[in-house]
């Protein structure tokens, strides 16, 4: 039974099991999606420990609010990804995170500053960087802010000093670019 449950399930099966609160499904969900969600989280939060915390919080929240998920409104992964993104952004703006910045000791601070300036290359993220670098620079900067830094489109517009409509269009074009590269 356990072996069967550990196989990947189709999304409707997953949703059904999740909403019936079958604990085994959480393990399946974790083995299927934890790395994808961790990828999303750790691009927003570069601090490893905090990113791990957020991943945990994400799965706790998925488990706790499974009943709120409505499959007519979107894919399960979209729902989970948005939980992960929202928790990451919350963390980024929380005292926890600000304190962790203050508490960086000098050695860590060097690499932290490097990360902030994107001087070092995390091999895990390199594929993404290439993908994004293929985008035109103006599309790249928008996706960078929204996807990597957890900005809302309104914040991104302020930051880039662009009209909201332009930011929206650029996000759309960037995602269309991604769609093309995947097909």
């Amino acid at each position: 039974m356990t072996a069967f449950k550990k196989l990947t399930l189709t999304e409707p099966e997953l949703v059904l099991a999740l909403q019936s609160k079958d604990p085994v499904v959480l393990k399946t969900l974790y083995s299927m999606y934890s790395s994808a969600l961790y990828g999303v989280i750790s691009r927003i939060i570069t601090h490893t420990e905090l990113a791990e915390d957020v991943l945990q919080e994400t799965f706790v929240k998925i488990w706790q609010s499974a009943s709120h998920y409505d499959n007519t409104k979107g894919r399960l992964f979209t729902w989970m990804m948005n939980i992960a993104r929202n928790l990451s952004i919350d963390k980024l703006r929380s005292k926890d995170f600000k304190n962790s910045l203050k508490n960086q000791d000098i050695e860590n601070n060097v690499s932290f500053v490097d990360e902030q300036n994107k001087v070092t290359f995390n091999p895990d993220v390199m594929g993404v960087k290439q993908l994004v670098e293929n985008l035109k620079p103006d599309l790249q900067s928008v996706l960078d802010l929204v996807y990597y830094k957890g900005f809302t489109h309104v914040e991104a517009a302020e930051k880039l000093n662009l009209p909201l409509g332009t930011v929206k269009t650029r996000i759309r074009l960037a995602i269309i670019e991604l769609r093309r590269s995947f097909n």
Partner: peptide
């Protein structure tokens, strides 16, 4: 699906 693919391909 694009975002999901994107996330899955850039999983850590």
């Amino acid at each position: 699906q694009a975002m999901e693919q994107y996330a899955l391909q850039n999983a850590i």
